[in-house]
Design a protein around this nucleic acid. Sequence first.
DNA 1: GGCTTAATGTAATAATGTTGCATTTAAAAT
DNA 2: ATTTTAAATGCAACATTATTACATTAAGCC
Lengths: 144, 144
Amino acid sequence: MSQIGDSLQFLRSRGYKVTAPRKQVLEVLRRSSKPLSAYQIQKSLPIKGKPLNAVTIYRILNLFCSLNLAHRVLSSGGFVICTLSEGEGCHRFVVCRHCGSLQEFASETLCQEESQITQDLGFQAEYHLSEVSGLCLKCRGGQR
Amino acid sequence: MSQIGDSLQFLRSRGYKVTAPRKQVLEVLRRSSKPLSAYQIQKSLPIKGKPLNAVTIYRILNLFCSLNLAHRVLSSGGFVICTLSEGEGCHRFVVCRHCGSLQEFASETLCQEESQITQDLGFQAEYHLSEVSGLCLKCRGGQR
DNA sequence: GGCTTAATGTAATAATGTTGCATTTAAAAT
DNA sequence: ATTTTAAATGCAACATTATTACATTAAGCC
Ligand SMILES: [Mn+2]
Ligand SMILES: [Mn+2]
Ligand SMILES: [Zn+2]
Ligand SMILES: [Zn+2]
């Protein structure tokens, strides 16, 4: 699973440098199953040497989000790595309100319907932010 | 349009007191067409006498949101008054990325489809957060 | 190995949000 | 009307999140 290599290659191909801080942030995000804040990322970084500067982490996260390598999850205020490919419509999340685990998904149908509804309200839809919260299988104890 | 009176009555009926700060925050939110942060609300309050304490404003906003008298718009971090009634599914927003104007809407269909999709991912959906961004009629210059 | 410029570090500050405790007051009871 | 009291607000201190300007470092190029 050299997904990280792909991300680094993607950065290079867009003219961005591959640096130690960027690799580290990418690593931390890939390992986490839950959204992490910039400062949580800072704390969970290698104890060897100085920790990354928070400003640097913010800049890296902004870059990753602008390239859709990562997303900011607004309902929790954290950042996650993107697990989907392009071309399936806007990337959405479903989050467990109990354990915080989350999964990314996309749906052309949802995008189209939202666009239709908002068009009737006079808007030209461009981006669809959507985060569904509920309970995951584990946190329901396998019921239902 | 004594919508405010209704809100105050609603507060009383739920056992909450009707206070000057609550009336003021309600007023400010009702007048605004865009989401306001707690501190923006504080600034836009009557210049007569001391301004409301920020802590108080946060507590009032939390109360309003818990009662669905107001909502927090996550994409902008501000608060708006609720303009819908209950029973139509989760309340959603479409926001103009240019002028910041926004409109609230709801759709049972969207809720059902999101619930179905996320159920297939193992989740029991409970709440649907959704904010569509785009351009309003004015900001498109009436085109399209 | 040096060059160039993007990226990072540093310091200072802004904006947002929370907690514990003292004081005030809306609304009920007398 | 006055008293009562729980709820609401004020106050002070602090935590978290985020941004800006400028100095320093180092990735990728020759
Ligand atoms: Mn994605
Ligand atoms: Mn609403
Ligand atoms: Zn769970
Ligand atoms: Zn607009």
